[in-house]
């Protein structure tokens, strides 16, 4: 049973293995296929950047992993294998025990993620006691240490404060401290630095990078900002219209994008353009989730589209460790050229 052993081995190093995930929203306008067949693997201790425009389904993918997709949304197909165990269809109570304990989440807007009427201590202690039977003062002690570890000065005083007494960056540190309370195997970070100033963004990235490396935590970093991914992630997955169109090691994908959409994204970065020239841009906008073109969803915006693109492009492996869904990839050696 060599094959089985091989799979066992792969599974044991994989923290997260998303297989052909479909999450749909049934609305009056029709079924929105927010996540439409996503495959994604995250190894232990690995940082994966999930990049895409608004509405590409990247956040819904994150919420699908921990079963927090609210109705009318629901997972209609696929598997979310976490440490070898499929979470799709798991009972709510079983999912609850995983949330915060084994899989933690950090949200986009730190001004909104903490409950405004509860003290920080309350919000941290409840996160501990939801999973463990601990004495109140021991839980407080741990909350205190967690705040200190994310670089919040005077944690013993800050514990008694309310969220509105913290700045945005400090609140995001609190959220990170809460996420790390149980040493989860996986953290899903949904654009956690988007709402912050650039300097604060840098500090938060440094904190996360350090803590994740110290503890061997896997990290799924959802963002629309390629430059953040470039400095943080090991691998990057580019999402478009509910699918991952390109995936691979971050340096390779950024240096040699194969999908015209990835190439367009990179070319759109202001730092990639020479001063005085017009900014490169991808024409048009992402199709709405209830009205996507057949075949490749990027087809209407793509300069390289051919008649073949009216068919669904299959996932291919153009190089070791990379995957791609495109019939007409960018020519080798192109550096984020125009799509």
């Amino acid at each position: 049973m060599i094959d089985d052993d091989f799979h066992q081995d792969v599974a044991s190093t994989l923290t997260l293995d998303i297989r052909n995930l479909h999450t749909h929203f049934d609305t009056r306008a029709g079924t929105l296929r927010a996540v439409d067949g996503v495959n994604l693997r995250i190894k232990r201790g690995e940082i994966v950047g999930l990049v895409g425009e608004s509405g590409s389904g990247k956040s819904v993918t994150g919420f699908s992993v921990i079963g927090l997709v609210d109705p009318p949304g629901r997972i209609v197909g696929g598997e979310v294998r976490f440490q070898g165990r499929n979470l799709v269809g798991l009972e709510e109570e079983a999912l609850r025990q995983l949330r915060g304990h084994d899989i933690a989440m950090i949200f986009q807007d730190p001004m909104m993620t903490l409950n405004p009427v509860l003290r920080i201590s309350t919000q941290m202690v409840e996160a501990i006691t939801a999973h463990e039977i601990v004495a109140e003062d021991e839980a407080l002690e741990r909350a205190h240490d967690a705040l200190a570890s994310v670089g919040i000065p005077h944690p013993e005083e800050r514990l008694r404060d309310y969220p509105h007494q913290f700045s945005g960056g400090m609140r995001q540190r609190v959220a990170i401290a809460i996420a790390l309370l149980h040493n989860p195997a996986l953290i899903i970070a949904d654009e956690p630095t988007t709402a912050l100033d650039v300097t604060i963004q840098g500090q938060i990235l440094a904190v996360v990078q350090r803590l994740v490396a110290e503890r061997g935590t896997s990290l799924l970093w959802i963002t629309h900002d390629l430059s953040v991914v470039a400095g943080l992630a090991h691998r990057v997955a580019v999402m478009y219209a509910g699918r991952i169109v390109e995936e691979g090691p971050v340096d390779e994908v950024l240096d040699h994008p194969m999908h015209p959409y990835t190439a367009g994204l990179i070319a759109s970065l202001p730092s990639h353009n020479r001063r005085g020239t017009r900014l490169a841009q991808i024409p048009g906008m992402a199709p709405p989730a209830h009205d996507r073109p057949t075949g490749c969803s990027f087809r209407p915006r793509c300069a390289r589209a051919t008649a073949e693109c009216e068919q669904d492009p299959p996932a291919t492996t153009p190089a070791q460790g990379r995957s791609l869904r495109c019939f007409n990839p960018m020519p080798a050696g192109s550096q984020g050229g125009r799509a």
């Binding site: 709510e92 025990q97 304990h101 933690a104 989440m105 949200f107 903490l114 996160a127 959220a175």
Partner: peptide
Amino acid sequence: DYIRFARAKGLTP
């Protein structure tokens, strides 16, 4: 968001 975050912490309903 803070209700979602509370749920993501694994609090009971």
